[in-house]
């Protein structure tokens, strides 16, 4: 491992390869931009940009039906869009790993990000998701690894929340 403070997106990409992830569904977030670029450059990974995050929950279910592993990348506000669709992974007992970059979490500037950011973990856990947080760059890769392992080994929704202390708060110059 080199400099985790800068390299954690590359470490996530390496984990996606190690776990043979073939489908990456996403609604972009600035915190995921470097990881998204790595995935787009990889011919063995099919990247689908979504119109709304719950599409990704459904897509990962379809991928698993066909024997491919997928992961959903989104920002914390998108978790709110996923809630009912998580019933698909729960009822079918299928893997559904999510990697969530947090907004409204630590030093947030935008009032609209706070309600969902503050509720992200509670809401996911209310829907049966195993949630782990990483609040330091060094902790991101081990946490994402655990999230992937628990999803594919125990067949359920799992999530890593990457804290805003890792990503840096968007300040709009203030």
């Amino acid at each position: 491992m080199s400099d985790a403070a800068a390299d954690w997106p590359d470490q996530i990409y390496a984990l996606l390869k190690e776990h043979d992830i073939r489908q990456v569904a996403l609604v972009p977030d600035a915190g995921h931009s470097r990881l998204i670029k790595r995935c787009l450059a990889d011919n063995d990974i099919k990247v689908a940009t979504l119109t709304t995050e719950e599409e990704g929950i459904a897509m990962l279910f379809g991928a698993w039906l066909g024997g491919e592993k997928g992961v959903l990348l989104m920002q914390s506000s998108g978790v709110g869009n996923c809630i009912n669709m998580l019933s698909v992974a729960i009822a079918h007992r299928t893997p559904c790993p999510m990697i969530v970059t947090m907004r409204g979490d630590y030093g947030e500037f935008n009032p609209f990000q706070v309600p969902m950011g503050n509720a992200t973990q509670t809401v996911l856990e209310a829907m049966g998701t195993l949630v782990k947080r990483s609040d330091t760059p060094e902790d991101v890769a081990p946490t994402v690894n655990a999230t992937l392992r628990m999803a594919f080994n125990t067949y359920r929704p799992t999530a890593t929340l990457i804290g805003q202390r890792v990503i840096g708060a968007k300040t709009f110059g203030k």
């Binding site: 459904a58 897509m59 379809g62 991928a63 039906l65 491919e68 009912n84 698909v88």
Partner: peptide, 22 residues
Amino acid sequence: NLPLWGGMGGAAMMGLGLALAQ
């Protein structure tokens, strides 16, 4: 056949994930 009992709004995307995998 994969008949759905829920997940309203997700059927087409499930088809996409499956079609890409197979």
